[in-house]
Design a protein around this nucleic acid. Sequence first.
DNA 1: GTCTATACGAAGATAGAC
DNA 2: GTCTATCTTCGTATAGAC
Lengths: 182, 182
Amino acid sequence: MVQSTALLVRERGVEATSFSDVLAHSGAPRGSIYHHFPGGKAQLIEEATRYAGDFIAAGLASSLDQLDPVAALREFCSSWREVLRSSDFAAGCPVVAATVEGERLPSASEAAAASFASWEHLLAHAIQRHGQTAERASSLATLVIAAIEGAVVLARAQRSVAPFDRVAEELEDLLVAAMTDG
Amino acid sequence: MVQSTALLVRERGVEATSFSDVLAHSGAPRGSIYHHFPGGKAQLIEEATRYAGDFIAAGLASSLDQLDPVAALREFCSSWREVLRSSDFAAGCPVVAATVEGERLPSASEAAAASFASWEHLLAHAIQRHGQTAERASSLATLVIAAIEGAVVLARAQRSVAPFDRVAEELEDLLVAAMTDG
DNA sequence: GTCTATACGAAGATAGAC
DNA sequence: GTCTATCTTCGTATAGAC
Protein backbone atom coordinates (compact mmCIF):
# COMPACT_ATOMS: atom_id res chain seq x y z
CA MET A 1 0.00 0.00 0.00
CA VAL A 2 2.81 2.39 0.88
CA GLN A 3 4.61 1.37 -2.27
CA SER A 4 1.48 1.84 -4.40
CA THR A 5 1.05 5.31 -2.91
CA ALA A 6 4.62 6.25 -3.79
CA LEU A 7 4.15 5.00 -7.35
CA LEU A 8 0.91 6.92 -7.80
CA VAL A 9 2.21 10.11 -6.17
CA ARG A 10 5.19 10.32 -8.46
CA GLU A 11 2.79 10.42 -11.42
CA ARG A 12 -0.25 12.33 -10.15
CA GLY A 13 0.99 14.22 -7.14
CA VAL A 14 -0.27 14.04 -3.58
CA GLU A 15 -3.69 15.67 -3.77
CA ALA A 16 -4.72 13.85 -6.93
CA THR A 17 -3.92 10.46 -5.38
CA SER A 18 -7.04 9.23 -3.60
CA PHE A 19 -7.53 6.27 -1.30
CA SER A 20 -9.64 4.67 -4.02
CA ASP A 21 -6.69 4.89 -6.40
CA VAL A 22 -4.33 3.38 -3.85
CA LEU A 23 -6.74 0.55 -3.03
CA ALA A 24 -7.34 -0.24 -6.69
CA HIS A 25 -3.59 -0.26 -7.35
CA SER A 26 -2.57 -2.27 -4.29
CA GLY A 27 -5.58 -4.58 -4.04
CA ALA A 28 -5.97 -3.80 -0.35
CA PRO A 29 -9.49 -3.76 1.09
CA ARG A 30 -11.08 -0.46 2.00
CA GLY A 31 -11.43 -1.16 5.69
CA SER A 32 -7.72 -1.65 6.20
CA ILE A 33 -6.91 1.99 5.73
CA TYR A 34 -7.61 3.39 9.13
CA HIS A 35 -6.44 0.24 10.85
CA HIS A 36 -2.95 0.47 9.39
CA PHE A 37 -2.92 4.27 9.05
CA PRO A 38 -4.84 5.78 11.97
CA GLY A 39 -3.43 9.15 10.95
CA GLY A 40 -5.33 8.94 7.66
CA LYS A 41 -3.97 10.30 4.43
CA ALA A 42 -1.34 12.45 6.11
CA GLN A 43 0.25 9.35 7.59
CA LEU A 44 0.01 7.38 4.35
CA ILE A 45 1.72 10.14 2.38
CA GLU A 46 4.36 10.57 5.05
CA GLU A 47 5.21 6.87 5.03
CA ALA A 48 5.20 6.73 1.24
CA THR A 49 7.55 9.71 1.08
CA ARG A 50 9.87 8.13 3.62
CA TYR A 51 9.70 4.80 1.78
CA ALA A 52 10.59 6.38 -1.55
CA GLY A 53 13.35 8.46 -0.01
CA ASP A 54 14.88 5.46 1.72
CA PHE A 55 14.61 3.38 -1.44
CA ILE A 56 16.49 5.97 -3.48
CA ALA A 57 19.04 6.45 -0.68
CA ALA A 58 19.68 2.70 -0.61
CA GLY A 59 20.37 2.61 -4.34
CA LEU A 60 22.66 5.61 -4.09
CA ALA A 61 24.53 4.16 -1.11
CA SER A 62 25.02 0.88 -2.94
CA SER A 63 26.43 2.63 -6.02
CA LEU A 64 28.74 4.81 -3.96
CA ASP A 65 29.92 1.76 -2.05
CA GLN A 66 31.04 -0.07 -5.17
CA LEU A 67 31.98 2.77 -7.52
CA ASP A 68 33.72 6.10 -7.52
CA PRO A 69 31.45 9.19 -7.32
CA VAL A 70 31.50 9.84 -11.07
CA ALA A 71 30.44 6.30 -11.96
CA ALA A 72 27.84 6.35 -9.19
CA LEU A 73 26.44 9.58 -10.60
CA ARG A 74 26.21 7.92 -13.99
CA GLU A 75 24.26 5.04 -12.47
CA PHE A 76 22.01 7.42 -10.52
CA CYS A 77 21.20 9.35 -13.70
CA SER A 78 20.62 6.13 -15.54
CA SER A 79 17.96 5.00 -13.09
CA TRP A 80 16.18 8.35 -13.31
CA ARG A 81 16.30 8.18 -17.08
CA GLU A 82 14.64 4.79 -16.86
CA VAL A 83 11.86 6.17 -14.64
CA LEU A 84 11.18 8.87 -17.22
CA ARG A 85 11.40 6.62 -20.23
CA SER A 86 9.40 3.66 -18.91
CA SER A 87 6.54 5.92 -17.83
CA ASP A 88 6.61 7.97 -21.02
CA PHE A 89 7.47 11.02 -18.88
CA ALA A 90 4.46 10.58 -16.61
CA ALA A 91 6.49 9.71 -13.52
CA GLY A 92 8.81 11.92 -11.55
CA CYS A 93 10.08 12.02 -7.98
CA PRO A 94 7.51 11.47 -5.21
CA VAL A 95 9.71 13.34 -2.73
CA VAL A 96 9.56 16.44 -4.90
CA ALA A 97 5.79 16.08 -5.14
CA ALA A 98 5.54 15.84 -1.36
CA THR A 99 7.56 19.05 -1.05
CA VAL A 100 5.68 21.03 -3.67
CA GLU A 101 2.27 20.06 -2.26
CA GLY A 102 3.44 19.61 1.31
CA GLU A 103 2.15 22.87 2.74
CA ARG A 104 -0.87 21.04 4.14
CA LEU A 105 1.02 17.95 5.25
CA PRO A 106 3.92 19.05 7.45
CA SER A 107 4.87 15.49 8.31
CA ALA A 108 5.35 14.66 4.64
CA SER A 109 7.48 17.76 4.19
CA GLU A 110 9.70 16.68 7.05
CA ALA A 111 10.10 13.24 5.52
CA ALA A 112 11.01 14.90 2.23
CA ALA A 113 13.59 17.12 3.91
CA ALA A 114 15.14 14.11 5.63
CA SER A 115 15.33 12.24 2.33
CA PHE A 116 17.02 15.09 0.49
CA ALA A 117 19.46 15.56 3.36
CA SER A 118 20.37 11.87 3.40
CA TRP A 119 21.08 11.83 -0.35
CA GLU A 120 23.20 14.95 -0.02
CA HIS A 121 25.18 13.48 2.86
CA LEU A 122 25.81 10.19 1.09
CA LEU A 123 27.15 11.98 -1.96
CA ALA A 124 29.08 14.58 0.01
CA HIS A 125 30.89 11.98 2.08
CA ALA A 126 31.82 10.01 -1.00
CA ILE A 127 33.18 13.11 -2.74
CA GLN A 128 35.08 14.03 0.40
CA ARG A 129 36.60 10.55 0.61
CA HIS A 130 37.88 11.07 -2.91
CA GLY A 131 39.88 14.12 -1.99
CA GLN A 132 37.66 17.18 -1.78
CA THR A 133 37.23 19.45 1.22
CA ALA A 134 34.10 18.94 3.30
CA GLU A 135 32.72 22.29 2.27
CA ARG A 136 33.20 21.85 -1.46
CA ALA A 137 31.93 18.27 -1.29
CA SER A 138 28.77 19.49 0.39
CA SER A 139 28.22 22.17 -2.26
CA LEU A 140 28.80 19.73 -5.09
CA ALA A 141 26.47 17.16 -3.56
CA THR A 142 23.68 19.68 -3.15
CA LEU A 143 24.18 20.91 -6.70
CA VAL A 144 24.00 17.38 -8.08
CA ILE A 145 20.80 16.49 -6.21
CA ALA A 146 19.14 19.82 -7.04
CA ALA A 147 20.13 19.70 -10.70
CA ILE A 148 18.96 16.12 -11.19
CA GLU A 149 15.63 16.76 -9.49
CA GLY A 150 15.19 19.90 -11.56
CA ALA A 151 16.18 18.04 -14.70
CA VAL A 152 13.53 15.39 -14.03
CA VAL A 153 10.94 18.18 -13.85
CA LEU A 154 12.16 19.78 -17.10
CA ALA A 155 12.19 16.41 -18.86
CA ARG A 156 8.63 15.64 -17.76
CA ALA A 157 7.36 19.03 -18.92
CA GLN A 158 9.08 18.82 -22.30
CA ARG A 159 8.44 15.09 -22.64
CA SER A 160 12.03 14.54 -23.70
CA VAL A 161 15.19 13.17 -22.12
CA ALA A 162 17.25 15.84 -23.90
CA PRO A 163 17.27 18.35 -21.03
CA PHE A 164 18.03 15.57 -18.57
CA ASP A 165 20.94 14.33 -20.68
CA ARG A 166 22.40 17.82 -20.99
CA VAL A 167 22.29 18.24 -17.21
CA ALA A 168 23.73 14.77 -16.59
CA GLU A 169 26.70 15.46 -18.85
CA GLU A 170 27.44 18.87 -17.34
CA LEU A 171 27.32 17.38 -13.85
CA GLU A 172 29.61 14.55 -14.82
CA ASP A 173 32.16 16.94 -16.34
CA LEU A 174 31.98 19.15 -13.28
CA LEU A 175 32.49 16.25 -10.90
CA VAL A 176 35.41 14.90 -12.92
CA ALA A 177 37.04 18.34 -12.84
CA ALA A 178 36.43 18.73 -9.12
CA MET A 179 37.92 15.33 -8.27
CA THR A 180 41.09 15.82 -10.27
CA ASP A 181 41.96 19.38 -9.21
CA GLY A 182 43.75 20.56 -6.08
CA MET B 1 -7.59 36.24 -10.82
CA VAL B 2 -4.88 34.66 -12.94
CA GLN B 3 -2.28 36.29 -10.74
CA SER B 4 -4.01 35.12 -7.57
CA THR B 5 -4.06 31.60 -8.95
CA ALA B 6 -0.35 31.70 -9.67
CA LEU B 7 0.38 32.96 -6.16
CA LEU B 8 -1.74 30.28 -4.54
CA VAL B 9 -0.43 27.47 -6.76
CA ARG B 10 3.17 28.22 -5.91
CA GLU B 11 2.32 27.64 -2.24
CA ARG B 12 -0.32 24.90 -2.25
CA GLY B 13 0.01 23.26 -5.62
CA VAL B 14 -2.60 22.89 -8.34
CA GLU B 15 -5.07 20.42 -6.85
CA ALA B 16 -5.16 22.05 -3.44
CA THR B 17 -6.01 25.44 -4.98
CA SER B 18 -9.79 25.67 -5.25
CA PHE B 19 -11.96 28.25 -6.95
CA SER B 20 -13.10 29.37 -3.51
CA ASP B 21 -9.51 30.10 -2.57
CA VAL B 22 -8.91 32.05 -5.75
CA LEU B 23 -12.11 34.07 -5.33
CA ALA B 24 -11.32 34.86 -1.71
CA HIS B 25 -7.81 35.95 -2.65
CA SER B 26 -8.71 37.98 -5.72
CA GLY B 27 -12.05 39.38 -4.57
CA ALA B 28 -13.69 38.30 -7.81
CA PRO B 29 -17.35 37.25 -7.69
CA ARG B 30 -18.22 33.57 -8.04
CA GLY B 31 -20.26 33.95 -11.22
CA SER B 32 -17.38 35.41 -13.18
CA ILE B 33 -15.47 32.16 -13.31
CA TYR B 34 -17.12 30.43 -16.20
CA HIS B 35 -17.65 33.67 -18.02
CA HIS B 36 -13.95 34.49 -18.15
CA PHE B 37 -12.75 30.87 -18.11
CA PRO B 38 -15.20 28.72 -20.08
CA GLY B 39 -12.65 25.92 -19.96
CA GLY B 40 -13.00 25.78 -16.17
CA LYS B 41 -10.13 25.03 -13.88
CA ALA B 42 -7.95 23.58 -16.62
CA GLN B 43 -8.01 26.91 -18.43
CA LEU B 44 -7.42 28.92 -15.26
CA ILE B 45 -4.38 26.83 -14.34
CA GLU B 46 -3.06 26.97 -17.88
CA GLU B 47 -3.30 30.76 -17.98
CA ALA B 48 -1.79 31.10 -14.52
CA THR B 49 1.13 28.88 -15.54
CA ARG B 50 1.67 30.89 -18.70
CA TYR B 51 1.39 34.14 -16.75
CA ALA B 52 3.97 33.04 -14.19
CA GLY B 53 6.29 31.70 -16.86
CA ASP B 54 6.09 34.90 -18.89
CA PHE B 55 6.60 37.00 -15.78
CA ILE B 56 9.78 35.14 -14.87
CA ALA B 57 10.98 35.20 -18.48
CA ALA B 58 10.50 38.97 -18.60
CA GLY B 59 12.62 39.45 -15.49
CA LEU B 60 15.31 37.18 -16.84
CA ALA B 61 15.31 38.89 -20.23
CA SER B 62 15.62 42.28 -18.58
CA SER B 63 18.58 41.15 -16.48
CA LEU B 64 20.33 39.56 -19.44
CA ASP B 65 19.73 42.69 -21.46
CA GLN B 66 21.51 44.94 -18.98
CA LEU B 67 24.06 42.61 -17.43
CA ASP B 68 26.49 39.87 -18.34
CA PRO B 69 25.26 36.28 -17.77
CA VAL B 70 27.02 35.90 -14.42
CA ALA B 71 25.54 39.07 -12.96
CA ALA B 72 22.13 38.16 -14.41
CA LEU B 73 22.37 34.76 -12.73
CA ARG B 74 23.12 36.50 -9.45
CA GLU B 75 20.02 38.65 -9.85
CA PHE B 76 17.90 35.65 -10.83
CA CYS B 77 19.02 33.76 -7.73
CA SER B 78 18.41 36.81 -5.62
CA SER B 79 14.79 37.04 -6.69
CA TRP B 80 14.22 33.34 -5.95
CA ARG B 81 15.83 33.76 -2.55
CA GLU B 82 13.40 36.57 -1.87
CA VAL B 83 10.42 34.37 -2.81
CA LEU B 84 11.62 31.73 -0.36
CA ARG B 85 12.45 34.14 2.44
CA SER B 86 9.39 36.36 2.23
CA SER B 87 7.03 33.37 2.29
CA ASP B 88 8.98 31.60 5.04
CA PHE B 89 9.65 28.78 2.56
CA ALA B 90 5.97 28.25 1.77
CA ALA B 91 6.23 29.45 -1.82
CA GLY B 92 8.03 27.82 -4.72
CA CYS B 93 7.69 27.86 -8.47
CA PRO B 94 4.16 27.53 -9.91
CA VAL B 95 5.55 26.20 -13.18
CA VAL B 96 7.15 23.29 -11.33
CA ALA B 97 3.86 22.65 -9.53
CA ALA B 98 2.02 22.59 -12.85
CA THR B 99 4.51 20.03 -14.17
CA VAL B 100 4.49 17.77 -11.12
CA GLU B 101 0.68 17.72 -10.95
CA GLY B 102 0.11 18.24 -14.63
CA GLU B 103 -0.72 14.67 -15.60
CA ARG B 104 -4.42 15.55 -15.50
CA LEU B 105 -4.06 18.96 -17.11
CA PRO B 106 -2.16 18.57 -20.38
CA SER B 107 -2.65 22.19 -21.36
CA ALA B 108 -0.93 23.33 -18.16
CA SER B 109 1.94 20.94 -18.83
CA GLU B 110 2.39 22.42 -22.27
CA ALA B 111 2.45 25.92 -20.82
CA ALA B 112 5.06 24.76 -18.31
CA ALA B 113 7.19 23.20 -21.04
CA ALA B 114 7.03 26.40 -23.07
CA SER B 115 8.05 28.46 -20.04
CA PHE B 116 11.05 26.30 -19.24
CA ALA B 117 12.11 26.31 -22.88
CA SER B 118 11.89 30.10 -23.08
CA TRP B 119 14.05 30.56 -19.96
CA GLU B 120 16.60 28.11 -21.33
CA HIS B 121 16.73 29.88 -24.67
CA LEU B 122 17.14 33.31 -23.13
CA LEU B 123 20.04 32.12 -21.02
CA ALA B 124 21.60 30.02 -23.75
CA HIS B 125 21.61 32.89 -26.24
CA ALA B 126 23.18 35.21 -23.70
CA ILE B 127 25.91 32.70 -22.88
CA GLN B 128 26.50 32.15 -26.57
CA ARG B 129 26.81 35.88 -27.19
CA HIS B 130 29.52 35.94 -24.54
CA GLY B 131 31.70 33.50 -26.39
CA GLN B 132 30.50 29.95 -25.86
CA THR B 133 29.50 27.47 -28.52
CA ALA B 134 25.79 27.00 -29.09
CA GLU B 135 25.90 23.45 -27.77
CA ARG B 136 27.76 24.24 -24.57
CA ALA B 137 25.62 27.33 -23.98
CA SER B 138 22.50 25.20 -24.26
CA SER B 139 23.83 22.64 -21.78
CA LEU B 140 24.86 25.30 -19.31
CA ALA B 141 21.51 27.08 -19.59
CA THR B 142 19.58 23.87 -18.96
CA LEU B 143 21.80 23.03 -16.01
CA VAL B 144 21.29 26.47 -14.48
CA ILE B 145 17.50 26.34 -14.79
CA ALA B 146 17.27 22.75 -13.54
CA ALA B 147 19.62 23.35 -10.62
CA ILE B 148 17.85 26.50 -9.49
CA GLU B 149 14.42 24.89 -9.69
CA GLY B 150 15.73 21.88 -7.82
CA ALA B 151 17.40 24.12 -5.25
CA VAL B 152 14.10 25.92 -4.62
CA VAL B 153 12.52 22.54 -3.87
CA LEU B 154 15.35 21.52 -1.52
CA ALA B 155 15.21 24.85 0.26
CA ARG B 156 11.46 24.58 0.79
CA ALA B 157 11.73 21.05 2.16
CA GLN B 158 14.56 21.92 4.52
CA ARG B 159 13.15 25.36 5.33
CA SER B 160 16.56 26.90 4.84
CA VAL B 161 18.30 28.98 2.18
CA ALA B 162 21.54 27.07 2.80
CA PRO B 163 21.04 24.49 0.01
CA PHE B 164 19.95 27.22 -2.36
CA ASP B 165 23.02 29.33 -1.57
CA ARG B 166 25.35 26.37 -2.11
CA VAL B 167 23.80 25.72 -5.52
CA ALA B 168 23.88 29.39 -6.48
CA GLU B 169 27.58 29.66 -5.69
CA GLU B 170 28.49 26.49 -7.58
CA LEU B 171 26.55 27.70 -10.61
CA GLU B 172 28.19 31.09 -10.51
CA ASP B 173 31.67 29.56 -10.32
CA LEU B 174 30.85 27.20 -13.17
CA LEU B 175 29.53 29.98 -15.36
CA VAL B 176 32.54 32.17 -14.68
CA ALA B 177 34.85 29.31 -15.61
CA ALA B 178 32.89 28.54 -18.77
CA MET B 179 32.93 32.16 -19.96
CA THR B 180 36.63 32.65 -19.48
CA ASP B 181 37.91 29.40 -21.00
CA GLY B 182 38.50 28.50 -24.63
C1' DG C 1 -24.34 40.00 -20.01
C1' DT C 2 -23.39 39.33 -15.10
C1' DC C 3 -24.13 37.03 -10.75
C1' DT C 4 -26.57 33.98 -6.80
C1' DA C 5 -28.15 29.56 -5.62
C1' DT C 6 -28.01 24.81 -6.52
C1' DA C 7 -26.87 20.14 -8.35
C1' DC C 8 -23.81 16.53 -8.96
C1' DG C 9 -19.91 13.81 -7.90
C1' DA C 10 -15.94 12.45 -5.23
C1' DA C 11 -13.05 12.93 -1.48
C1' DG C 12 -11.76 11.56 3.40
C1' DA C 13 -13.37 9.70 7.56
C1' DT C 14 -16.41 6.65 10.67
C1' DA C 15 -19.79 3.63 12.77
C1' DG C 16 -21.58 -0.76 12.90
C1' DA C 17 -21.56 -5.95 11.16
C1' DC C 18 -18.85 -10.22 10.98
C1' DG D 1 -9.85 -7.55 15.48
C1' DT D 2 -11.04 -6.89 10.57
C1' DC D 3 -13.92 -5.27 6.84
C1' DT D 4 -18.50 -3.46 4.29
C1' DA D 5 -21.58 0.25 3.97
C1' DT D 6 -22.59 4.88 5.01
C1' DC D 7 -22.07 9.93 6.27
C1' DT D 8 -20.39 14.39 5.84
C1' DT D 9 -17.89 17.82 3.54
C1' DC D 10 -16.17 20.18 -0.29
C1' DG D 11 -15.06 21.11 -5.12
C1' DT D 12 -16.39 21.78 -9.83
C1' DA D 13 -19.79 22.87 -12.90
C1' DT D 14 -24.44 24.67 -14.27
C1' DA D 15 -29.00 26.44 -14.56
C1' DG D 16 -31.82 30.14 -13.72
C1' DA D 17 -32.62 35.14 -11.76
C1' DC D 18 -31.43 40.10 -12.35
